[in-house]
Design a protein around this nucleic acid. Sequence first.
DNA 1: CGTAGAATTGTTATATAATAACAGTCATCG
DNA 2: CGATGACTGTTATTATATAACAATTCTACG
Lengths: 164, 164
Amino acid sequence: MNKFVLPEHPHCPHDHSQCVSDALSAAEQVCERAGARLTALRKRVLELVWQSHRPLGAYDLLETLAREDDRRPAPPTVYRALDFLQEQGLVHRIASLNAFIGCASPEHTHQGHFLICRNCRVAIELDQSLIHPAIAKVADQMDFSVEAETVEIAGLCSQCREAA
Amino acid sequence: MNKFVLPEHPHCPHDHSQCVSDALSAAEQVCERAGARLTALRKRVLELVWQSHRPLGAYDLLETLAREDDRRPAPPTVYRALDFLQEQGLVHRIASLNAFIGCASPEHTHQGHFLICRNCRVAIELDQSLIHPAIAKVADQMDFSVEAETVEIAGLCSQCREAA
DNA sequence: CGTAGAATTGTTATATAATAACAGTCATCG
DNA sequence: CGATGACTGTTATTATATAACAATTCTACG
């Protein structure tokens, strides 16, 4: 991995290879603690998911894997790795896009809440403390016990809005 | 339509045929105002979507249509009707379930926010004023312009939790 | 009326996303 | 080592959604 690659999207310029390596070492730790095995395949899928801050479809990942390893893996290979990564809290699924994105802070398990730009397709993970309280309050009022929160806000990020 | 049917789920017993007829007459008005045509097919699909307070898949609707009208419609038939109903704000799509549900208050266009019980599968539409402010605040902070809100809270409703 | 144009619906084929079921391989521990 | 369980490979299939074009129906206008 090249250290000073250009970020894969024009916004929020940053050393993206740092994101990737941070994510990978965080993942090592998380799995270590959980007694789970971060195998080569799972690690590679996580790395691919992190190649940008955009949600990626399972079949996109398959394509990439196929290109680098001449024997094309079948869908279950990628889905199983994604299932594992989701269980460990390392990846979130974006239901409204049928796509997957790396979790920004896998240390403590949490729900993913996202702002998703329809133009540049970047997904920004929100701090859970921002929206969860409102949800918890409603759920409490309705005597509903929350198990999973899907919060996906689509629109335009500031850069894309300015550009338009 | 029988006036005093049993509700299709055990919770919140109510005269469900009233829900359906209310939804249909509201739909008439909404389309009237919008200058849109609520054709027989669209009306029938809306009625089917309202047959319970549970989200229904497009292929479930297709099945039902097939049973009543001996020539089986093809998927685009139902998807187009659903697209229309969504445009008019009469139906919401639940991304996390790939399913559709009638909108409880189509008079004013709005986003659908839902509590969804994983046990009885009922989806309760929340008043938008409950969670939207938190979203608007975050979006404002991030200088993000919101166009669509997907808020789907999964868990157990009070009745199902008590039962367990 | 009658017909042109637009909207709606029908039909066939296909794309896209996800999983079931079973076979083979690999890691680890006694 | 060898048995056990975890992981991966493989084939087939299911589930969800859309593209493209043909046929029909509605509506407005002459």
